[in-house]
């Protein structure tokens, strides 16, 4: 990474963080105003730096990986240690955001944004609502007081031992199978994979806009056959191409790289083409969850026996009439 750019971004992020911290902690109106101004300035600075950053060489994303994974882990730790459930939820938002960043590093753009929208936007807000609903202090004096069950953890030692065992096993597995891990794919590999996916999804309904250049095919008998309508995307080196018969000679139409399908397209294809039933089932599950939530959370109204009978149009039961005479009951 360019140190200048990094320095710039760092400075901006420091300003932004300080602004955030001030926004959270500051008591006075003036301080809040200053913090807001500083934060907006930092945000504008970031935006202005986006256009300036050019890809000049192969970037090493280790820094980002370490950065975001550290954030995720640190925030998750904060999340489970925070005595206040609301803080926990907010730290979890941070975890979601940093893991979305990790998704980006893994070229899963769609999932990254979906994660932020669904988790941070929807689910966590629901949590917040419930928290606010439940944490209403019955007494104003109790407002600042934390609930005992939030302050004192339960069986931390046992939990840590279990966690230790699990982590030890997982890490040992990972260490042990490091050599068996697939080698990191090259950029061309991932591009070819994308094209292949695209090809199998669409049946090669390419448009002419994909075409980068047309060169004569040198080995026309490649694979023994050639399809005249150019349905099959083929690869050589980093290039993807289709073969088209023109007269007696075969032309190789190289496809332009930027027209390769994006991650969003590919995920959409995969979802619809490979897992249609699962998709429908997911919808049904969500529907059922909605029903369940509605039915569970509505306020229950307890009706007495007589009220139930009245609602059903039946006569009330007079318990007094049914009670046996105590004297008569005892006499033989």
């Amino acid at each position: 990474m360019d140190p200048k750019l990094f320095l710039t971004a760092s400075v901006i992020c420091i300003f932004a963080s300080v602004a955030m911290w001030m926004l959270v902690k500051a008591n006075t109106r003036a301080a809040k105003g200053i913090a807001a101004i500083v934060g907006i300035a930092a945000f504008l600075g970031l935006l202005s730096n986006v256009g300036m950053s050019q890809i000049e060489s192969t970037q090493k994303p280790e820094v980002f990986f370490y950065l975001f994974s550290l954030i995720a882990i640190a925030c998750s730790v904060m999340m489970i240690t925070s005595a206040k459930p609301v803080y926990s939820a907010l730290y979890f938002v941070m975890v979601v955001l940093s893991s979305a960043s990790l998704f980006l590093l893994l070229q899963a753009e769609f999932m990254a944004f979906a994660l932020i929208i669904v988790y941070a936007g929807a689910i966590l807000i629901t949590y917040m609502f419930v928290l606010m609903l439940a944490q209403q202090a019955s007494d104003p004096e109790m407002e600042q007081e934390q609930a005992e069950y939030d302050v004192n953890p339960r069986e931390p030692a046992a939990a840590c031992i279990v966690g230790f065992v699990m982590l030890t096993l997982l890490s040992s597995m990972i260490f042990q199978s490091m050599s068996d891990m697939p080698t990191p794919p090259s950029a061309s590999d991932s591009r070819i994979a994308a094209w292949q996916t695209f090809d199998s999804m669409l049946g090669s309904k390419q448009e002419i806009a994909f075409v980068q250049r047309v060169i004569p095919a040198e080995n026309a008998g490649w694979n023994g056959v050639h399809d005249d309508d150019g349905n099959l995307i083929r690869f050589e080196g980093d290039e993807a191409y289709i073969q088209i018969a023109q007269g007696e000679e075969t032309l190789r139409v190289v496809l332009e790289d930027r027209f390769a399908p994006s991650n969003v397209e590919l995920v959409g294809f995969d979802l619809i083409a490979k897992f249609p039933v699962s998709l429908e089932l997911a919808g049904v599950i969500l529907l059922m969850a909605m029903f369940g939530a509605v039915i569970l959370a509505r306020r229950q109204i307890e009706l007495s026996e007589d009220e139930v009978r009245e609602a059903a149009g039946m006569a009330r039961i007079s318990f007094e009439a049914l009670e046996p005479d105590s004297n008569g009951g005892e006499s033989p």
Binding site: R154, E155, I161, V162, V165, M166, L169
Partner: peptide, 24 residues
């Protein structure tokens, strides 16, 4: 609830130990 969860997780951990731990 947490106790049960600890036991359950411990059970999972032990089963994993049995499955993988041998080789490790």
């Amino acid at each position: 609830l947490q106790s049960y969860a600890v036991h359950m997780a411990g059970g999972v951990a032990l089963v994993t130990v049995l499955i993988i731990g041998h080789a490790a």
